[in-house]
């Protein structure tokens, strides 16, 4: 998988934003490629981790957000664990995801942002995750309500998934945390 990269340190470069958001210094990468060799989804994406770092160094912009690669990541952190220079590449991917969502880039395959919103909405309402509601919201939004219908009856019967919403959480604390996060985002953080 060869990607042609041209040096274009344009104002649109994502390098600074990603380094700040992920709290990493990508300048220390010397392309040993241990991250790419250990990546369980390297075969499924256009650029493996070391190549994404190189592209960022060379001034890549929004094109990194438009490919599906950042949404294929499993957050397994093998890249980070094996990096000899301790670059937290998993945090780089999280930063790219957050920037993609902020910029409203086209929804990726699988629509993970919709899943994350559905999940966190239940946490905000109940103080704890409410799987059934999160899954229903996600599947409704993603239009794949039919998938996994073969498993739900057995899981419900076995009590492997809860029907009733969670109770007993300190909801006030969670509400405050979400309100602060929304406020910080509004302040441009």
């Amino acid at each position: 998988m060869t990607t042609r990269i041209t040096k274009q340190n344009t104002p649109g470069s994502l390098l600074k934003a990603v380094q700040e958001k992920a709290d990493v210094n990508l300048g220390v990468c010397y392309q040993c490629r241990k991250c790419s060799i250990g990546c369980p989804v390297a075969g499924e994406i256009e650029s493996p981790p070391s190549e994404i770092i190189r592209r960022l160094q060379l001034g890549a912009g929004d094109e990194l957000l438009q490919t599906g690669l950042i949404w294929t990541c499993l957050s397994c952190e093998t890249c980070y664990a094996r990096c000899p220079n301790r670059i937290n590449f998993a945090a780089v991917v999280d930063a790219l995801k957050a920037i993609a969502v902020e910029k409203g880039v086209a929804k990726p395959e699988g629509d993970a942002p919709l899943f994350n919103r559905s999940f966190l909405n239940t946490v905000r309402s109940h103080g704890r995750a409410y799987d059934l509601k999160a899954i229903a919201m996600y599947k409704l939004g993603a239009g794949n309500l039919g998938q996994d219908m073969d498993k739900f009856p057995a899981m419900l019967k076995k009590g492997k998934i809860a029907i009733l919403p969670p109770s007993g959480a300190d909801k006030g604390k969670v509400k405050r945390i979400f309100e602060k996060a929304a406020k910080n985002k509004g302040a441009g953080r």
């Binding site: 957050a98 969502v101 966190l120 946490v123 704890r128 959480a169």
Partner: peptide
């Protein structure tokens, strides 16, 4: 009164 740790959805959204 324990609450959700944020799981993988929170760190993908906002550190």
């Amino acid at each position: 009164g324990w609450t959700c740790c944020g799981a993988s959805s929170a760190h993908q959204t906002d550190r």
